[in-house]
Amino acid sequence: MLVPPLRPLATLNLEPNIRSRLHNAGYRTTADLGNVTAEALAQELGVPLHQANSVVQQLNKDTVVSISALEALARERRRLSISTFSKAFDSMLGGSGVPTGRVTEICGAPGMGKTQLGMQLCVNVQIPISCGGAEGEAIYIDTEGSFVVERVAEIARATYRSVGGSEENEKEQVDEYLSRIHYFRIHGYLEQIALINQMDQFLKKHPNVKLMVIDSIAFHFRQNFTDMGLRTRLLNGMAQNFRRFADMSDMAVVLMNQMTTRITRGEQSNNNTATLVPALGDSWGHASTNRIILFWQRELRHAMIVKSPNLQQRTIQYAVTGDGIRDPPTTNPTPNNPRKRPLDE
């Protein structure tokens, strides 16, 4: 049994006249109002029904709902993942790919394959459940203009073949894949915020969306901002929304981020070191649940998970091929740290 929290009425968002009427009628806390109906309250205070309604609505909203850890675990186990088609990449993310219900951030310098990864996921999220996919739709928010439909079609064709699709209706199937990717092109940070504001409605209309890719989150927030406080506030607001989408509709949110150079003064004053770090500053690091950095090393593409509550830190290799994201051809797997084992076993 949930006990309604005792909260002073003055802390509710009420119009001044209602607040004073409630006060005059002797109501002080939410408990005083109890289970009053809107009609009764309207009559008693002598206010229009819609105003009384808003009071009652706020009362009901305040009941806190919690779930137990066991329920949460069960929910976690029901969660689907979206495969990247690179076994190493998937296993780095816990075995089966990008998790739904989570915000995953992928950072990388230009040309690392962020967009390729985004396009691959948009296609792979549609793989039928019978073939181990999530059978959902995808939203692609493009802020940089790198989304090339022809390339997506190419990846879709390869995916369709690898899940054992027949050749005769390949073209229709590829078109089908494309039609389930909802694409938005954004030209400014305000548009980005405006789109996110409307996302709730969009998701209501398209309940089967299981993936949202934003490529990239940083681009429009790295210009025109003189007030860095405002930038941080807007980004945090957006991060809240992403977490909410991920949780509510149980979808995977994938944020692409750019890299920037940070110069740190070395011990000797002439020994400055340049470090590549994800853009948008330190506070943005809290926005995502999992954070992955992509980088080149010895002519090979590497991915490293740098932040995660349940995955161990490790580095893997992946490749970008004509068909999309795959494992590199010469597999010399990076040895796992034997002292650790994945937490979700």
Partner: peptide
């Protein structure tokens, strides 16, 4: 400048060059 470039705190390779 290249030898000092590191990615996410990991030293080595030539990430900046390849960028």
């Amino acid at each position: 400048t290249i030898s000092h470039a590191t990615v996410g705190g990991i030293q080595g390779g030539d990430p900046y060059l390849r960028v």
